[in-house]
Amino acid sequence: MKSTKEVLPFAVILLAVNGDINAINQILKHFEHYVIRLSQKTLFDEHGNAYIHVEEETKRMLETKLITAILRFELS
């Protein structure tokens, strides 16, 4: 069974590691759904109904950590 996930091209990773803003944005877009999923929190309204809320502060923190990891990544 083949994976349906697309792999980032090596050229994009190389550019991102070297600080290219467009490549970093492309990586952020690639991981956007995962970051949103990690940022979700289940809350309850006044009637006890559950709903999903995306914590924007958590999302921004995860994106910042991803950018930091990209810029510190060493290709050898």
Rank of each mutant, 00 (worst) to 15 (best):
T4C: 15
F73V: 01
V54F: 06
E56Q: 15
V54A: 05
H47A: 15
E56P: 07
A50W: 05
I24W: 03
H53S: 08
L14H: 02
E63W: 01
D45L: 08
V35E: 06
F44T: 12
T58K: 15
R37V: 11
E46M: 04
K65Q: 14
T58I: 10
G19N: 01
H30W: 07
D20E: 11
F44G: 01
V7H: 09
L14S: 05
L15A: 11
H30L: 06
S39L: 01
F31L: 06
F10W: 03
I21H: 07
V35L: 14
R37T: 13
A16T: 04
A11V: 06
I36S: 03
L71K: 14
F44V: 13
T42R: 11
N18A: 07
Y34P: 00
M61W: 12
Y34S: 13
L71Y: 03
L62T: 09
V7S: 08
E57V: 11
S39D: 03
N22K: 14
M61A: 15
L38R: 03
N25V: 06
M1T: 15
R60S: 12
A16K: 00
R37G: 10
I21V: 08
L75C: 08
M61V: 10
F31T: 04
I70C: 02
N49F: 09
E55I: 07
L75G: 01
T58E: 14
T42W: 00
K2E: 15
K29T: 12
V7T: 12
L71R: 12
L15F: 06
I52Y: 03
I27V: 06
Q40F: 01
V7W: 01
I27Q: 02
E46D: 09
V35A: 14
V12L: 10
K5C: 04
L28H: 08
A50C: 04
F73W: 10
L71G: 03
L75S: 00
L75I: 15
T4L: 15
E56R: 13
Q40K: 11
K2G: 13
Y34G: 00
T68D: 09
I67V: 15
T4Y: 14
A23Y: 04
L66I: 14
L28T: 08
K5H: 03
L75N: 05
N18C: 02
Y34Q: 09
Q26G: 03
V12Q: 02
I67H: 07
M61I: 04
V17E: 00
Q26R: 11
L38T: 02
E55Q: 11
L66M: 15
E74R: 14
L66C: 06
I70G: 02
T58G: 03
G19F: 03
K29W: 06
A50V: 08
H30K: 08
I52F: 06
H30I: 01
M1C: 07
F73H: 11
K59V: 06
E63D: 09
L28S: 10
E46G: 09
H53K: 11
V17A: 04
R72S: 11
V17Q: 01
Y34H: 08
L15T: 01
E55M: 05
T42E: 07
E6S: 07
T42F: 00
L43W: 09
G48Y: 06
P9E: 14
N22S: 07
E63F: 00
I52D: 12
